[in-house]
Nucleic acid binder design. Structure first.
Length: 698
DNA sequence: TTGTGGTGT
């Protein structure tokens, strides 16, 4: 393949470009503050390593840059490569695991390069692209990993790009693992294409081996020293909440000024620590921080700076996603809630577990961003040594239905032999393939059905795409789309603020459908949409939507996001998937429940006693979620959206009561598919009896 | 007798 002529630059040449009178990217003079910005950039730890980086970049198709946070690599390396690749006329992509990082880095780097955001430097995140329409003009695009994966589907050679920089590779998202595997293919087919992997120091060996022992450049990150103290084993114990609160009070009373950041597993522990600290420390501003906190309260924790010392008590959200300025003291409990996946049961377990050493270092680093800091680890050195070196890759932590579907759609068949960075659990793979067949998205020979091909292009879990298709047959595809988005959205539309839990739960009953949590979600959403539409009519008093939402304990931002998404997706489902739009939920909720029964036939449970059910195909006991509107209904058959543990109990999340008659004709419910023991006896006799009674009723 | 970390197309 013909290689594109390269102008391999030296550091001196790059500096010359940066020091020139005119901006080489725009041909115009630099903005006024250019000189100051340039001096700041040249003080970053990465700056002294430019030649080494360029030399390796020129010699190898893949290289790894490792350094801890604070080195400036996320902002500086892309700029360096923009100049180096300028002659190719192609773009540089830099991927990020999170949307916020992609947009913020883009705007900072646009400023540093003296260009307008969205011209030479831009970003692409799902549903929001801010790059120049003229592809030749854009030189650097920050994007989420998911966006680049999506582009790979339509352009397998990534022909618009000279180089892809993968940032935060150590976070090991599912998208990252997929992306690296697919980029490996691009590398072998395009000799002019390069990949730079940027990671914290922990995983570099794994990446190096994966990419044929490619070169590695390491440079220091932290600019400031963080002193670390461990806790003596006899002082640690199960009551890390009290210990954390006491440590805050101790620092506040005895240590130099400087803000405090505490890491805890979740909301409950955070609110406890906050109230203990408030009781025992004066002149200290205490803020909780976690993702379900309303964004106004989050801003308070991030932005506020008054005369008092500040203490932020946070989940992992402050480890990577949000940065709190001026933290000097970090208190690390060594714990976080982590999603643990059981592939056999397809069960999600949210468990409090020991963090990894990589995560502990990341937490520690939060203390040394602006000056020297101190990190108090509320565990012993022996416990630290026992921690896993790095955090479990995402591909081991969740179901991989959509991963399998997407790889098959990209032309891969034998996924057990796929060149994984870390292979998923074989049972995960087998279960995913089996379910995709049960949902009629994969054929027996492992190829895609027509529905499977369309589902692979749909930004929803495959099971939801199939539900929408079935919905079309029952005239309610739009209802199912709404429900799919409501169930898939990161933020719940129902809010339960601390101190108002009961009031919030009571408010929710106003929307409750006694037979279906899915329809309860749809009712709340539809009610909001009707109230909003009333505001559009003339000669009516306007309703304050924010206040209306607050009064009904609804999250208006979540509702608005769903409205935007359903508009976009509704149109594309109709255009490309030929799905007939239809809505019945107002007059005919039975159709919606029927569709859910058929689509979620792999997720059924049968009644036992109390609020206890038993999942049919995994044969496992579970409770209705305490919030479910089905509680007390004792319905014989239900379908559920997710199966998860919290604490010691297993819950079925978002359930709908169904009739056995709706199941009996499905292939999945023929006698041969019911789970049996080793002796071929049915595991649950009552399942067969109930199905037989239903067949007799038809 | 009931309860939850963080992401993304």
């Amino acid at each position: 393949m013909e290689s594109i002529a390269r102008n391999q630059l030296t550091v001196a040449q790059v500096q010359h470009l940066e020091d020139a009178n005119q901006n080489p990217l725009t041909g115009k003079s630099w903005p006024q503050d250019h000189e100051g910005i340039l001096q700041g950039r040249r003080r970053l730890p990465v700056y002294g390593r430019y030649q080494e980086i360029l030399d390796n970049y020129h010699q190898s198709q893949v290289m790894i840059l490792s350094s801890e946070t604070g080195s400036g690599k996320s902002t500086q390396v892309p700029q360096l490569l923009v100049y180096d690749e300028y002659e190719s006329g192609l773009q540089i992509a830099c991927t990020q695991p999170r949307r916020l990082a992609a947009t913020e880095l883009a705007s900072r780097v646009a400023e540093e390069m003296g260009v307008n955001l969205g011209e030479e430097v831009g970003y692409k995140i799902g549903g929001d692209h801010n790059v120049n329409q003229n592809k030749k003009k854009t030189r650097l695009a920050y994007m989420t990993e998911g966006v680049l994966l999506r582009q790979l589907r339509s352009d397998k050679l990534l022909s618009a790009y000279a180089c892809v920089i993968i940032d935060e590779a150590h976070e090991r998202t599912v998208d990252l693992d997929l992306l690296l595997a697919l980029l490996k293919k691009v590398i072998s087919r395009r000799k002019d294409f390069k990949v730079v992997i940027m990671s914290a120091t922990m995983d570099t060996k794994l990446f190096q081996e994966y990419f044929d022992n490619c070169p590695l450049v390491h440079f220091p990150g932290l600019k400031f020293e963080v002193k670390t103290f461990y806790t003596a084993p006899e002082e640690t114990g199960p009551d890390f909440v009290t210990l954390a609160a006491a440590t805050v009070v101790h620092i506040h009373k005895n240590q130099e000024p400087g803000d405090i950041l505490v890491f805890l597993p979740g909301e409950n522990e955070i609110e406890k620590v906050c109230s203990m600290v408030r009781r025992n420390a004066k002149d200290l501003d205490v803020f909780p921080l976690y993702s379900s906190l309303p964004s106004g309260d989050q801003r308070l924790a991030l932005d506020s700076s008054g005369p008092n010392r500040k203490c932020v008590v946070s989940t992992n959200i402050a480890e990577t996603s949000l940065t709190i300025a001026n933290v000097v003291y970090v208190i690390d409990t060594g714990l976080s809630r982590q999603l643990v996946y059981n592939p056999r049961l397809r069960l999600n377990m949210l468990e409090v577990r020991l963090i990894s050493q990589a995560s502990a270092k990341q937490r520690m680093g939060r203390a040394g961003r602006t000056k020297n800091g101190v990190c108090y680890r509320l565990y012993s050195k022996a416990v630290y040594d026992s921690m896993a070196p790095s955090t479990e890759p995402g591909i081991h932590c969740a179901s991989i239905d959509s991963v399998v579907l997407n790889l098959v759609a990209s032309g891969y068949r034998k996924l057990i032999d796929f060149d994984w960075l870390d292979a998923p659990h074989p049972e995960s793979l087998a279960r995913a393939a089996q379910h995709l067949q049960d949902w009629e998205l994969l054929k027996d020979d492992g190829s895609l059905t027509r529905s499977g091909r369309l589902a692979s292009k749909c930004p929803l879990d495959p099971i939801w795409y199939r539900a929408i298709e079935i919905g079309a047959k029952f005239g309610c595809s739009l209802d199912i789309l709404d429900i799919a988005l409501l169930c898939s959205s990161q933020k719940s539309i129902f809010i339960r603020p601390a101190g108002y839990r009961q009031a919030a739960d009571l408010a929710r009953t106003a929307f409750a459908d006694p037979l279906s949590d899915h329809l309860t979600l749809a009712n709340a959403f539809n009610t909001y949409m009707r109230v909003r539409q009333l505001n559009d009519q003339k000669n009516r008093p306007k309703i304050d939507l924010e206040r209306w939402c607050t009064r009904h304990f609804l999250n208006m931002r979540a509702l608005e996001e769903i409205d935007i998404k359903r508009g976009e997706m509704g149109a594309s489902l109709e255009d490309t998937c030929k799905i007939t739009p239809g809505r019945t939920s107002i007059t005919d909720t039975t159709s919606v429940r029927k569709v859910l029964a058929i689509a979620f036939c792999t997720h059924t449970a049968i009644y036992r006693s109390g609020d206890t059910y038993r999942t049919v195909h995994e044969n496992t006991p579970a409770l209705l979620s305490p919030h479910s509107s089905l509680v007390g209904g004792n319905y014989e058959w239900i379908v559920y959206t997710a199966f998860q543990t919290s604490g010691r109990r297993q819950y079925l999340e978002t359930a709908t009561a169904i009739n056995a008659e709706w199941l009996v004709d499905l292939p999945f419910f023929q006698d041969s598919r019911l789970p049996t023991t080793g002796d071929r006896l049915l595991r649950q006799e009552n399942v067969k009896r109930s199905l037989d009674r239903a067949r007799a009723r038809i």
